[in-house]
Design a protein around this nucleic acid. Structure first.
Length: 878
RNA sequence: GCGGACGUGGCGGAAUGGUAGACGCAAGGGACUUAAAAUCCCUUGGGAGAUUUCCCGUGAGGGUUCGAGUCCCUCCGUCCGCACCA
């Protein structure tokens, strides 16, 4: 190939990408050894659900992870960068119902298809560690851990009210109910009473909350969301005596939880949850109350209903005695807004300082007494009508609390009541409550990990013996009727009891698929070990994951469950740490314009033609010219048909172009708008780099560095090393958009320098350009690995750039001999001054005062002040 | 209702309290070409001016500072999370 022909030849991404992928795979350069002595770095992207095709969100996510992996590898780390499949879940069952394919074959076909797609992206993954959660070799260990957790007291079976998804016909965890709807089906969730298996995540409430502070490399937003979700509140558990004359049964007290014991003298009523035992007991003797409770149960849990629901109550006739005044009794209501599963399911109501309580008393005419007076208010004139006051202030109308602050009053009430006893127990005790509930994991589905439990009529709940694990899913199941196919299976569930050998029944519920994803990161450290979920030594070497990357949608669900699971695993001796992910990054979504035809139908971008710009911008169906409306920019979704298929993009432009575009423009934590123009820009740059490298490769340059380098040579070296310093820092901080800007800048500088090479005698410029060419290729290698290999080879290297070390910055090249400082007069830029790098502030000041612009501004006067900020700016105050 | 984030050209966005608009996209002009594509060069926040240059400008209004897109206060707007949690 002659120099001229190589100049004009376009880079054939399709051909080159396949070729380099083959080379990487044949030389197995991304395999990670577990006994590698170099410092470890574990980079992980949230593994995908094998839906069948990757989408642009995957491309963005995995590109970011791959940039980090390739960079850290070049930096000399032993990098673990694995991939697997979150392979259990509903869509496989839906496919079975709709298309009569078995969930297993559907899933594995999808895995094969998506693996091929991921491989076409050129990701530097260690595929030898691939795991699929639906593989018995994987879920066997999950079943074992379930039994370990059970032994450790972290699993519990209890009857409880659960979220029931009527469409998916299964139970959902609280975290999986979004706005009152199932996170997957979108159906309005109903309440049902069922016996379920629970992981006792609430056992770790305090620890999960406290440890958030240690997760310094997590986004503040995610930490805050978890903090709010755990919802810690401090208060008082307080026992009210009931007036025996008013109670239908022999109950004599009512325990409530409050965070506002200071407002005790503003109490106007007590309220019980409809599900409270006292309500239930009273209802047995009072049909009207029973009816009221029924009515409460009928009320939906949907967001809209709760928002508009009126506060309703039913007076039970019972009276509670005020803890500080035996002669003061309060009516006991059953109220629809009291939740049974928070606190004790009962409250005292202080209407003046709680909006709900105020709404309630205003409906039932119970009145209110303000007990906290806002600062600056006259207590005598301070009244509450429709708006409760929940701010700070001074205690009033509260006997011995009067004049105290809220905090003092809380303390005083607690002190008095916790030392008072009734029936050998203190009347009150301080308590911390959490919003976080235990994690219900039972799902009435087929395609999930079977819960390894046997129910025996005689022995009760019996764990499956370890030797019998895994409990595998039967393959001969039918999906012709609603409900759980495991339950319908003719034989699978009938077994012998491991204890008494009598007839018994298998648990037919399977585990929530979030269990599968709660420990896969640990399995990757040694996916080959058969006897245990992890090899203790290996897992402790690799974990925690140094950089975890995924969507913000898992801020609570997956990320909280995994934190719990790691703690539970530690308790069972399986890992040596509490936190699974020391660094977390949540990337933004890939969004795209939407297009809608006159008939309301959404049209795919691939079928759209755009004409005009700005206000004149019009969209039409490419084939027919039919005009369509350009809609809002939204997350790529099938329903709005605004998706772009990664396969199409890779076929048209190559993976490197797609990767490059994904990283450019938007900061990685924000949404990126996919545009055809942007992709074409990325593609043009691929070609430009190829031409640029081709030109550099054609330069005749000395093999060794010339003794003396001229000005233009040094300029090139400075540009290279400045880019190197910036890109290194920016990758390290995951600021990929800035990396890309710096690479553009560097490429522009090189282009200019090449233009000069024939104009002047070679003063080392040719050598510097060859050096800079190498650096350029190494810098863009993490983002565009195929093009980088092709360029690396074109520059005459026999190695793979993917296996090269990261170039070293020469710090002296980052320093200029002279610096140009902006000169401000009264804070506005008026001039510039160029001084020696080592000039003292005095010298700089003198140079500045000698400037014409400054002299003019001063008009012969001396300045009030001259501020010299070294290396930055000079400000003259006139 | 509670909590949080954000607001910068035509667009995506740069900017440790220190030259606002890097870099990219789009647009306009030019070169090359029979022509187009591709490529290369120039221009591109608004306004005034022939030039040097000047004025205005980071949602609005105040404040702190020699200096504010950045810090503080008030307001407006957008987005996100939670939501009858006592």
């Amino acid at each position: 190939m002659t120099a001229d022909s190589s100049k004009n030849e376009r880079y054939n991404a399709r051909q080159a990408e396949a070729r380099w992928q083959k080379v990487w795979s044949e030389r197995d350069i991304f395999a990670t050894k577990n006994d590698d002595p170099r410092p470890k770095y574990y980079v992980l992207e949230m593994f995908p659900y094998p839906s069948g095709r990757i989408h642009m969100g995957h491309v963005r996510n995995y590109t970011m992870g791959d940039v980090v992996a390739r960079f850290k590898r070049a930096m000399g780390n032993a990098v673990l960068h694995p991939m697997g499949w979150d392979a259990f879940g509903m869509p496989a069952e839906n496919a079975a119902i709709d298309r009569k394919v078995h969930p297993k074959s559907w899933t594995y076909d999808n895995i094969a298809a998506m693996k091929k797609q991921l491989q076409s992206m050129g990701l530097s993954l260690d595929w030898a560690r691939e795991v699929a959660t639906c593989d018995p070799a994987y879920y066997k260990h999950q079943q074992k851990m379930f039994l370990d957790f059970l032994k450790a007291g972290l699993v519990e079976r209890k009857q409880s009210k659960v979220n029931w998804d009527p469409v998916d016909q299964t139970v959902l965890a609280n975290e999986q109910v979004i706005d009152g709807r199932g996170w997957r089906s979108g159906a309005l969730v109903e309440q049902r009473e069922l016996t379920q298996w629970f992981f006792k995540i609430s056992h770790y409430s305090e620890d999960l909350l406290k440890a958030l502070d240690t997760l310094e490399r997590w986004p503040e937003k995610v930490r805050l969301m978890q903090k709010n979700w755990i919802g810690r509140s401090e208060g008082l558990l307080l026992r009210f005596m009931l007036d025996p004359a008013t109670t239908p049964n022999k109950e004599n007290e009512l325990e409530i939880f409050t965070t506002r014991p200071d407002t005790l003298f503003g109490a106007k009523f007590m309220a019980l949850s409809p599900d409270h035992p006292l309500s239930q007991a009273a209802a047995k003797k009072n049909p009207k109350l029973a009816e009221f409770i029924e009515q409460c149960h009928r009320m939906g849990t949907a967001q809209a209903e709760i928002e508009t629901a009126e506060k309703l109550g039913f007076d039970t006739g019972m009276r509670a005695i005020h803890p500080f005044d035996r002669n003061w009794t309060l009516p006991v209501y059953v109220a629809n807004f009291i939740l049974m599963d928070y606190g004790t399911g009962a409250i005292f109501g202080c209407p003046a300082h709680d909006q709900r309580d105020l709404d309630f008393v205003n409906k039932y005419g119970l009145g209110n007494t303000p007990v906290v007076c806002p600062p600056g208010q006259d207590p005598k004139t301070f009244v509450i009508t429709d708006v409760a006051y929940d701010g700070d202030g001074t205690m009033i109308n509260s006997r011995f609390l009067d004049g105290m602050t809220i905090e003092q009053a809380k303390e005083e009430v607690a002190k008095r009541l916790e030392t008072e006893t009734r029936g050998n127990r203190p009347v009150a005790q301080r308590q911390v409550n959490y919003r976080l509930r235990d994690w219900g994991i039972s799902r009435q589905r087929y395609w999930g990990c079977p819960i390894p439990i046997i129910h025996c009529e005689k022995c009760g709940v019996v764990p499956v013996p370890e030797n019998d694990l895994p409990v595998t899913l039967p393959e001969d199941v039918t999906f012709d009727k609603p409900g759980n196919p495991l339950d319908h299976h003719p034989t699978w569930k009938s077994v012998r009891c491991p204890k008494c050998a009598g007839p018994a029944r298998r648990e037919t519920d399977t585990m929530d698929t979030f269990v599968d994803s709660s420990w896969y990161f640990a399995r990757f450290t040694d996916p080959w070990i058969k006897t245990a979920p992890t090899d203790r030594k290996t897992v402790d070497e690799w974990l925690p994951v140094d950089q975890y990357i995924g969507g913000i949608e898992h801020a609570i669900l997956h990320l909280l469950y995994s934190r719990f699971f790691t703690r539970a695993m530690r308790k069972c001796g399986l890992v040596g740490m509490d936190e699974p992910f020391s660094g977390l990054f949540t990337q933004g979504m890939v969004v795209h314009e939407t297009y809608r035809a006159k008939n309301g139908e959404w049209i795919e971008p691939a079928n759209i033609k755009i004409e005009g710009i700005g206000d004149a911008r019009r969209a039409m169906v490419a084939a027919t010219g039919e005009p369509v409306e350009i809609g809002s920019i939204e997350k790529m979704s099938k329903s709005k048909k605004n998706t772009v298929d990664p396969d199409d993009i890779i076929a048209a432009y190559g993976a490197d172009t797609a990767r490059w575009f994904m990283l450019s423009d938007s900061p990685p934590d924000r949404d990126v708008i996919w545009t055809e123009e942007g992709v074409q820009g990325a593609w043009r740059f691929v070609q430009r780099l190829w031409r640029l490298v081709g030109e550099i490769a054609n330069i005749q340059a000395p093999a060794v560095r010339p003794q003396n380098l001229g000005e233009s040579a040094i300029k090139v070296r400075k540009a290279a090393h400045r880019a190197l310093a910036h890109v290194s820092e920016d990758i390290d901080k995951l600021r990929f958009n800035r990396c890309i800007a710096h690479i553009y800048e560097f490429a522009n500088a090189l282009g200019d320098a090449i233009g000069n090479i024939e104009k002047a005698p070679d003063d080392g410029l040719s050598w510097s350009l060859r050096e800079a060419g190498d650096i350029l290729v190494q810098l863009f290698h993490p983002m565009m690995p195929h093009l980088a290999e092709e360029c690396w080879a074109a520059l005459g290297h026999k190695t793979l750039v993917a296996s090269e070390g990261w170039p070293k910055v020469e710090p002296q090249l980052l320093i200029e001999d002279t610096i140009t400082l902006p000169v401000q007069i009264n804070g506005k830029k008026r001039a510039e001054v160029t001084v020696n790098r080592n000039a003292t502030n005095k010298e700089i000041e003198a140079a500045v005062l000698a400037l014409d612009a400054v002299k003019k501004a001063l008009g012969g006067q001396s300045p009030k002040k001259v501020i010299v900020v070294p290396q930055r700016i000079v400000n003259v105050v006139v």
